[in-house]
Structures are given as structure tokens and as C-alpha cells.
Design a protein around this nucleic acid. Structure first.
Lengths: 178, 178
DNA sequence: GGCGGCATGTAAGTTGTTACATGATTAA
DNA sequence: TTAATCATGTAACAACTTACATGCCGCC
């Protein structure tokens, strides 16, 4: 089941009509640590899905150039079929580990830099995830999906914690051996 | 610094001359949990790198149709430059989390299935990583890079453990609420 | 003789990134 | 009035997957 971009967009539309621009923003916030899409994917896919009848769109009356999309029955059905289908091979590419693997070819301080940048970035992710977690437990749950989202957030928290622990251990062992 | 496939191939060649076929095998074994390449990437890239003078190739005398590649000075230099450059944005795509995020649209047992498949797969990764770890500490270290590889393995162990812990917790919480 | 693994390669299609072009709206 | 953000979209390119075609080698 390829064409994954579309299912993310359809998923977002289950919570109500939004524009392509808004979809992009939501993906960047909510899915930031495990998914990404760009406009070059989003807009053509929306156009194509409308052509296929999975979504419909309307342009707001007040002369605004904003196009809002809504899910059709057919689109919802396609989403559910996707969600039920087995998860395909996940794709992960961690350049840091390639650079680590071959790190004997570069000075130690460069690898330390790479590690510290990685650590910082995931520390930020972790802070954000903790914030989301706190927020979600205190605001209303109109779509009844907070428990599901909390599970996803929990995944992020656990894996980011693991990354940071690894960074700390690795940095310590590199300091010792220098 | 794009064109990442090439640097992985150059990295492998630092340990001695090998063929494209062997590179593919090595990637599938050593990098399995954080990187992948396919023949459709490897062979054209090797051809192009030879053209650029980053590698050279020889066909074994004994009429075999096996082409073995070696690193040139220029190729080694290009690799080192890459290794020194900052790590770019990592790309991670975890479909499971998309399906989890929108799981209110599918029956509970389907999500449980997804989780168990994920858990199984990462349990296997973890077993393999533990095996590698044990092996590496007991065999000779001709290239003097076992410490570096162990760091990479450690990353894999830590993150896979985090994934599995998350699966267990999530499965338990879903059982309770069913 | 047939099977599995070794070995190389490409064509076609799909997917994804980046940079650009364009213009409206809003708040300081 | 000007900067930021909202908003849509495409063209060119780069990267990646999949399926296919081909043939060797060793062994049972």
C-alpha cells in the first residue's frame, strides 16, 4: 500500500475541513518526530484525490484565495482500508550512525560535535513532547482521540529518551578514551 | 551534502576492495536497522563514482564476471569531507504511528495486530544486535573500528528496547480498556 | 538436471525535495 | 509601510523502488 502521503492527508481531514496550507502546518507540528511532507507532495496529491472523488473542495466566498478540503464517504473508506492494512517496512535513515560507524577516519572532536548536535535536537523534541503530553491531558477532547495521540507521544518520549541516554554514554566513553 | 548512497559505499571500501553485490549484502546486515540501499542505487552510483575517479575497478582474471572496486585517494578524501560535514536532517517514517494516531477509525484488534507485528520485528532486531555485540567483543579487530561499531550497535539496542517497552505498555493499556 | 546463491545491470515508474513565482492579509 | 505570515502552486531535479533480464558456479 504505497502512496502514503494521501492517507496522512485523509487522516487529518477526519477532524474537519482544512486547507493544504493547514495540513502542512499540522504535519510539521504533530508528526514532526516521525513523518514529514512538503508542499510539492501535498498540493498535487490534493488535486489528484479530488479528481478521484476522495475529497471535495470549496473556496471561501469572501474573495479569499483559500481552498478548504473535505472528506467524502469514499475518501473515508479509503483511509480505513489503509489503516487496517499491515504496516509496511518502516524507513529510517540515520546519517549520524553512518558517520559514527566510520568515525575512525575523522578527528574525535568532530564526532563529539555531531553527537552534541544530535543530543540537542532530540532534547528539544523531548521537551516539546512533554509539553504536548501535559497539554493534552488538560484540554477538552472533541474528537475522542487523545488517548491515541498520547500513545504516539509516548513513543516519541521513550525513543528520544533512549537517544539522549545513548548520547550521554557515548560522549562519556569518548571523553575517557581521549 | 546530498548523495548519501555514495558515502556509504566509499565507507565500506575503506576496509578493502569488494564488489557491488557484496556491498549490498554488507549494508543489509550491518546497517539493517538504520539504513538501506538497493541495487538500483548501488550499481549506477558505482559506475558514476568510477567515472569521477573516486574508485577504480578490476575484473578478476579467472573469467569470472565479478567486478571488484577499490578506493582511490580522491575517493577517500571525498569520504572524509562528508564525514566531517554536519549531519543533515534525519529522515524517519514510522507508518505504525500514523495508524496509531488515527486508530479510533479501526477496530481495536487490528491496532493490536499492528503493535504485535512491530514488537516481533524489533525483538528480532534486538536479538541480532545482542549477538553482534557479543561477537564483536570476542573476535580480532583488524580495522581497529570495533569500538565505533559497538557504539552504533548500542544505539540500536537502546532504541529497540525503548520500542519494545512502549509496545508492552501500550498493549497492556489497550487490554485494560477493551 | 535443477536449485540456491553469486553476480551485474537497467527501465520504468514513483516519490520526494528545492527553489521559484505569485499574491493576499494582518499587525506593528 | 513594511515585515511576517497566510496561501497556492509548479518545474526541475534528485532519489528510490520494483521488476525484470541475464548468466555463472557449485553441489546434491
Amino acid at each position: 500500500m504505497a502512496r502514503k502521503t494521501r492517507y496522512v492527508l485523509l487522516g487529518l481531514l477526519t477532524e474537519g475541513p482544512i486547507s493544504g496550507y493547514e495540513m502542512n502546518k499540522l504535519i510539521k507540528i504533530r508528526f514532526r518526530f516521525f513523518w514529514d511532507e512538503s508542499y510539492g507532495q501535498i498540493y498535487p496529491e490534493l488535486k489528484y484525490m479530488e479528481h478521484e472523488g476522495l475529497i471535495t473542495s470549496t473556496v471561501a466566498t469572501e474573495s479569499r484565495q483559500k481552498r478548504t478540503f473535505s472528506l467524502t464517504e469514499k475518501g473515508y473508506h479509503a483511509l480505513v482500508e489503509y489503516l487496517k492494512a499491515p504496516v509496511e517496512k518502516e524507513s529510517v535513515r540515520l546519517e549520524l550512525l553512518i558517520k559514527m560507524y566510520f568515525s575512525k577516519h575523522i578527528p574525535n572532536h568532530v564526532t563529539v560535535d555531531h553527537l552534541m548536535t544530535f543530543r540537542d535536537s532530540h532534547l528539544k523534541d523531548l521537551a516539546l513532547l512533554n509539553q504536548f503530553q501535559t497539554e493534552l491531558t488538560s484540554i477538552p477532547d472533541p474528537h475522542g482521540n487523545h488517548q491515541d495521540i498520547l500513545k504516539v507521544i509516548n513513543f516519541g518520549i521513550k525513543s528520544n529518551q533512549a537517544y539522549i541516554t545513548w548520547c550521554d554514554e557515548t560522549l562519556k566513553s569518548m571523553e575517557k578514551s581521549k
